[in-house]
Design a protein around this nucleic acid. Sequence first.
RNA 1: GUCCCCAUCGUCUAGCGGUUAGGACGUCGGCCCUUCAAGCCGAAGAUCGCGGGUUCGAAUCCCGCUGGGGGCGCCA
Length: 488
Amino acid sequence: MSEVRVRFAPSPTGKLHIGGARTAIYNWAFARATGGTFVLRIEDTDPERSTKENIDLIIRAMRWLGLDWDEGPHIGGDYGPYMQTERFDTYAEALEQLKASGNVYPCFCTSEELAARREAVQAGAANEPDPCRSLSHEEAQKRIDAGEPHVWRLKVPEDRGTIVVHDIIHGDAEFDAALMDDMILVRSDGTPTYNFAVVCDDVNMKMTHIIRGDDHLSNTPRQVLVYEALGYPTPTFAHLPMICGPDGKKLSKRHGAASVEEYRDMGYLPDALFNYLALLGWAPDGETTLFTREQMAKLFTLERISKNPSSLDYDKLEWINSQYIQQMGAAAFVDTLAPYLIEAGYAADETGVEALRSRLEAIYPLVNERVKLMTEAVPMIAYLLDDSIELDEKSVEKVLRKEGKGAKTALVEAAAVLEDCPWTVEGIEAALRGLCEKLEAKPKFVFQPIRVAVCGNMVSPPLFESIELLDRGVVEQRLRAAAELAVD
RNA sequence: GUCCCCAUCGUCUAGCGGUUAGGACGUCGGCCCUUCAAGCCGAAGAUCGCGGGUUCGAAUCCCGCUGGGGGCGCCA
């Protein structure tokens, strides 16, 4: 078997869509699993909607996800260029070949005529062959020479019969060629249409497998016709089921996040999003849910891709994200936290973050089981970073100002007890537990006021560990300040 | 309208002729406990969309129906 070559071919009309991201992941995984080549090709033939910025955005999002490719824009390769707008000569060449072999013909119909015909057909009228198809060579040439605008259409062979699309995921799908109209290959402005450009590129770039969205399945028989007209064997197809929103409907802005960037901004880790997306439509077995890119690259097969469309489940994504945060380790945590710290003003730049590194790494074990989204981290640890803190109003009401609970006494006594205890988690815990006994109070009535005083909230990371990470003076000051507000 | 695709707990899925239909997220309950989490234990939750076949036996194979999705662009 010849070497596997696959590609991800986004059109830069927007950011990297979540569905596109998964397509890219599967292509990547298949290439890595088979020792094949993964190609990135930019389909920018639509000048109206394609932008340079989007190309950068897509490439950056792919890198962020941890994807790498063997050939593509910037890095080159043996089958470049990898932007369709730079490959126009190859399409022109292909068109000449098709003209010579008589597989195409010029069509002079206007867009209006076409639209009217299309409407008639969709309303139930019989699908008539394009009138230009029967124009004589001479007549057609005369009109071309006269400068009449025309497109080039593919001539569907009359006796083509059934077109079978071999798809690894869906099996064989059969289409009747008689129902297929002569699609436009080259527009009147000379540019190739999508269906023509893809086939030319996939042929010239020697693609062996086409892994793409389900939405292309119905277009595939048309493309097969182009392969045949060009005289090339068709590659193997794998059409991925669509990804829907949580409500099972098509993904749109209404459902929130449609682009990879948005997920990044919401605080998802690239490893987690990768893992989740990989799992959306593919499973290594019935058990495994957490795996790395490397593991997927070993286990991936197209045969195990699911046929049914899947709905996004943010709860599961979030759970996967929390699993990764829990296990990522202190160093990686600080690295990914850096931009958030800078944005929140805790550091001016990367260097500033480095100055805080050891402290942040010490904080990690207190929050790694609590942070589900990276966006939650900074607010959660602010009380360990700021000199002064603001007490949560609700917590003050429910814990410090609650009469009959002895909050004020607990705070005053705690300040005293912490004055000379060993400043270790054990020392602090011993001192405060001793205080509970001395006051004959349930731990809850001693610890909660202290928590509010020190952490600013009745809900917080572990208390003794938090205190240990703060300076003794700061803790005392917070306890005294809170005692002022508290009642017994 | 027409062609194509799809159909297992709420969600993602395992299953590929014989299983008590398995797992994960979520949900609910319990343990732990100074809060929130995490962790551990347990439970509920799927007459495998419906109806016909084939077969000793069907979630698995065949046909029909229904429901959902997609294509039918000088968009990709």
